[in-house]
Design a binder for these strands. Structure first.
Length: 305
DNA sequence: ACACGTCAAGCGTGT
DNA sequence: ACACGCTTGACGTGT
């Protein structure tokens, strides 16, 4: 089992997704920014290893405008060595990497140009994994997309687009149940049609479900991951922010809820991404809970920073 | 030095 | 028709 957090390390003064405005795009600016982002990315991964956090979601903005036509800089060749070094580090320490392209990636849009831009964004993010030399156990996670007043048609459009994706994207793509439109049940139907793994989000499942218990839901999702091709199931973990609007993520890990979740998990192996606002602070507490339950080996005591 | 309006992209909901 | 949340920082202009 690995524990991770998304995109940003709040302890280090180093970010892997610094960017600039489209209006101020130049190749020089791009080159400088990517160089700095990759330097910080490696630094964050090193910090994670030192703290026993072996799962990390890399932000979409490592290469600013990575799928935008304005960006014709050959960053793939210019930074081949840096990407490779990061991939080597990931493999040397058995880290797991994911990407979560954001809401603009909609594979089931009825608008062909939106689908085309979405595919280009997935190609960009998948190519970073290729450049790192990482296999298909490292994933790109997206949602099924929009509803467009016709669930069946929306699902069938997703399936049709999925089948046309470039191989490098298709082998890495996974779908996550969302909190309002496409439930675990919907994702399982897409899986049944094309074999795409389902990345389970426990909090979204609490918001939108068809009566499956948490323990059942976890096992249904786990069964969609092919052990060698996809690796151990990945999931997102969060819980409701107390007193806030339904669906809002908690600002910090609630240890008692997490312990209850671990009971539902039972003996299932899973890599857990903590989608919690205070990032690595909660990830630390999750690790402590897991070590207490004997589910994680001991790690070096967190170094003062 | 600091404040704050704004930033590539989509969708559904609420007013 | 339009603003908002999603996820949030931080860019970049103006003072």
């Amino acid at each position: 089992m690995r524990i991770g957090y998304p995109c940003v390390n709040e302890t280090l003064d180093c970010t892997s997704t610094s960017t600039f405005r489209l209006a101020s795009y130049t190749d020089e600016r791009l080159e400088l920014t990517v160089a700095n982002n990759l330097r910080c990315l490696l630094q964050i991964l090193e910090w994670n290893v030192a703290h026993g956090l072996l799962f990390f979601r890399i932000g979409s903005g490592v290469v600013p405008f990575g799928s935008h036509p304005i960006n014709t800089f050959p960053w793939q060749t210019r930074f081949a060595a840096e990407f490779r070094a990061i991939g080597d580090y990931v493999q040397a320490h058995s880290l797991r990497i994911s990407f979560h392209p954001d809401q603009f990636v909609v594979l089931n849009s009825p608008d062909a140009s939106i689908v085309e831009r979405s595919v280009q964004e997935l190609v960009y993010q998948g190519s970073m994994l290729d450049l790192m030399g990482l296999d298909s156990t490292h994933k790109l996670q997206i949602h099924v997309g929009g509803l467009y007043n016709d669930r069946e048609l929306a699902i069938s459009r997703f399936i049709a687009t999925y089948q046309r994706l470039p191989e490098a994207v298709r082998v890495r793509l996974v779908i996550e149940n969302d909190d309002r439109l496409f439930s675990l049940h919907d994702c399982l139907r897409v899986h049944a049609a094309v074999g795409i793994p389902v990345l389970f989000d426990n909090f979204h499942h609490e918001c939108l479900n068809h009566g499956e218990t948490m323990a059942e839901a976890l096992r249904l999702a786990a069964a969609t991951w092919h052990p060698t091709r996809d690796g151990v199931m990945m999931m997102d973990y969060s819980s409701q922010a107390p007193g806030e609007r339904k669906g809002k993520h908690t600002p910090t890990l609630e240890d008692n809820l997490f312990e209850g979740f671990l009971r539902d998990l039972g003996d299932l192996d899973v890599d857990i991404m903590l989608e919690i606002k205070d990032k690595e602070a909660s990830a630390h507490r999750a690790c402590a809970t897991l070590r207490g339950a004997g589910l994680l080996p001991g790690v070096p005591a967190p170094a003062a920073t």
